[in-house]
Design a protein around this nucleic acid. Structure first.
Lengths: 244, 244
DNA sequence: GATTGCCGGATCGTTCAACAATCCTTCAAA
DNA sequence: TTTGAAGGATTGTTGAACGATCCGGCAATC
């Protein structure tokens, strides 16, 4: 390939990229709010008034509505008709449901996933475990929590299904909302770090059934620990959406 | 309980019900379009112009946009920025992805589902199989196809997770779009009817691992048969969204 | 005949203003 | 203390308008 052809190829690639970079305003607003929630700057139960949000972000109220609807579809927010949109506040039944879904998806991905024997996918699972180990060694428990999510995300990536990965992303976003109300990050993550390592090792050694069964037991234990802590929260576990 | 108390109770129940019956216009529009697609009156690739739709349904264009966005989030429609919204037209990669997801979720629900041993849930699976058997006996292959979807829906219900059931509903909606392009309903469903019955029997007999593994093989076979037929479609398998 | 450039029309994404409906809070009356 | 009414806030929807984008058709050029 000559230099002239390479230049044309570069220009075409750049043009194609520029065509995909234009992001509609509503999507930008949704991205922004999603990040605010994910980083816990927007707390569970917080109300997002359309008017104020439009003024703050310099977009019209209609655009805000579109963005909020997108996040409602992702279950990050919840819309109460005629009352407003709130950051979702998962309650005990939500936790049970999320774990019921994870209990099928995660061991299922290990046992039946199209990439369950793919060295690259397995390597990502191990890397996520090591990321958590590294964070724990410097006492960065927020980092341990993040790495734990990467671990579970990468387990589901064994499925080789973008659709399933997106749904898992939604479940993990809900888990982050759950943990917003849990100050004791260390308590909920430290006991599972070694278990992540064991599961990763079983996977690497090809013991998929053992790994799947161990992960199922792990998820049951984690769910029960969370439900126990939730039941002891101040203010109890009321409706999933508070008053304004 | 006296008659006067019963009347008050009735009135209160009626009032509570009326509070939940008010459906926002955008949601009614989305429900309407969803049904048109599910019943194949709106074909894959069809374009849905906002203006015309608003005039036809007597709602404003903004309300149409909200409804369309909801269906885009469900993957029933696909939005091409600045060009319009189209009924999604799954291509080969979409089929691969949907099956990769189902290959994890369905056997996973059998193996790890919270309701995998629940007699009522297992009874629903058997009933769906019998529904298909009944439809086949009168040559109603559309009915066989519908019963087949109920079968798979009810397998996933073994998970005991409303979130997972909703996601499965989306995957099944996509399968219906796939089959819109397949005139030979009988060919794609008849071979699997007996297999549905075998899986249901294994479940009833408590052979969950055998049932899960058989379902995985079934899904692989179904996927490969579909991909083979898709490759032979007239017009080939182009981009997932046609021109206007 | 094939390619390129321009123009017009259609319509999408967004904004704005307005209105009806709903809900919540506050205050006064019983 | 309870009930009812009024006021204010805001949500759901409508309609008009405008800028941006895209596509198709037509004419000019090679």
């Amino acid at each position: 390939m000559t230099d002239a052809n390479a230049a044309v190829q570069d220009a075409l690639a750049s043009l194609a990229a520029s065509r995909t970079v234009v992001v509609p305003a509503a999507e930008r607003v949704a991205d922004r709010i999603r990040a605010e929630v994910a980083e816990a700057r927007l707390r569970v139960g917080a109300r997002l008034p359309e008017q104020a949000l439009g003024a703050a972000l310099q977009v019209s109220r209609n655009t805000v509505r579109e963005a909020l609807s997108q996040l409602v579809a992702e279950r990050v927010l919840i819309r109460v008709p005629n009352r407003g949109v709130f950051v979702a506040q998962p309650e005990a039944d939500d936790i049970r449901d999320v774990y019921s879904a994870r209990l099928v998806i995660e061991p299922g991905a290990i046992r039946y996933g199209a990439r369950a024997a793919d060295p690259a996918a397995l390597s990502a699972v191990r890397a996520a475990y090591r990321e958590g180990r590294g964070a724990a060694e410097v006492g960065d428990w927020t980092g341990v929590a993040a790495a734990n999510q990467h671990f579970h995300r990468d387990v589901v990536a064994l499925a080789g299904s973008p659709r399933l990965e997106r749904e898992m992303g939604r479940l993990l976003a809900e888990m982050r909302l759950v943990f917003q109300r849990m100050p004791q990050v260390r308590e909920f993550h430290e006991p599972y770090l070694d278990r992540n390592g064991e599961i990763a090792a079983m996977l690497t050694d090809g013991h998929v059934e053992k790994a799947a069964d161990e992960l199922a037991r792990y998820l049951v234990a984690a769910r029960d620990q969370l439900l126990d802590a939730y039941a002891r929260l101040p203010g109890g576990t009321g409706p999933a959406t508070p008053g304004r």
